[in-house]
């Protein structure tokens, strides 16, 4: 039996409901990230927010990007962040997070910013297509055509960027072996 076009009773289309659900989860989870008092839970909530975004990408027909989001953002970056959180948790750092003294003005500024965004981006004449349901899935071909067309240089340079970041990251985070240049055999020297 096919599903009805809209949600029963409230008359919202399935696509709209899905969008509202995913968007709501994204906002709720990210609010938790910036407001929550336990940093480990914040990290987990970040993963939830990023996951919900991946869902929105699927809705937009950008499955390839959703894949990248899951692999890179959730699989790598967030795990790295959680790892860093575990590593830096100690008795010296209070488990209950506190805010800077300017948190209240920051909240005001951010609320104002959100309203301005909503107005400017919502009322702008984008000359955009309107889809009946959700947009058709984007073929990987068009993305690939862009990546290996106009963005080829950027694409290649990003690999250099990652190389540079990895070299620097390893250097900064690594504890050098004794005897090597940079070894910590003399704490006073810096």
């Amino acid at each position: 039996m096919p599903l009805p076009d809209t949600l029963p009773l409230i008359g919202i289309t399935w696509a709209d409901a899905l969008f509202m659900m995913l968007g709501g989860v994204t906002i709720a989870a990210s609010l938790f990230v910036v407001l929550g008092r336990d940093i480990i839970r914040n990290g987990l909530m970040l993963i939830l927010a990023l996951g919900a975004l991946a869902g929105i990408y699927v809705m937009l027909g950008a499955a390839i990007l959703a894949g990248a989001q899951v692999l890179v953002y959730i699989g790598a970056i967030s795990v790295l962040i959680l790892f860093a959180i575990m590593l830096t948790q100690s008795k010296a750092a209070p488990a209950k997070l506190t805010f800077q003294s300017q948190a209240l003005p920051a909240a005001l500024i951010a609320s104002l910013l959100a309203i301005i965004f909503a107005i400017t981006l919502g009322t702008n004449d984008w000359k955009a297509t309107v889809f009946a349901g959700t947009p058709a899935p984007q073929g990987t071909t068009s993305t690939a055509a862009e990546l290996f067309g106009p963005y080829l240089l950027a694409f290649e340079v990003v690999s250099v960027l990652i190389l540079a970041a990895v070299i620097g990251g390893i250097y900064l985070a690594a504890i050098p072996r004794a005897g090597q240049i940079g070894a910590e055999d003399d704490e006073e020297v810096r």
Binding site: P150, Y151, A154, V157, V158, L161, A164, A165, G168, Y171
Partner: peptide, 21 residues
């Protein structure tokens, strides 16, 4: 173009963070 410009910018500044530390 803007995309290349941004990637170039990041490649310029990210090593700066490493150097600062």
């Amino acid at each position: 173009d803007l995309v290349t410009l941004f990637i170039g910018l990041e490649l310029m500044v990210i090593p700066g963070y490493i150097l600062a530390g």
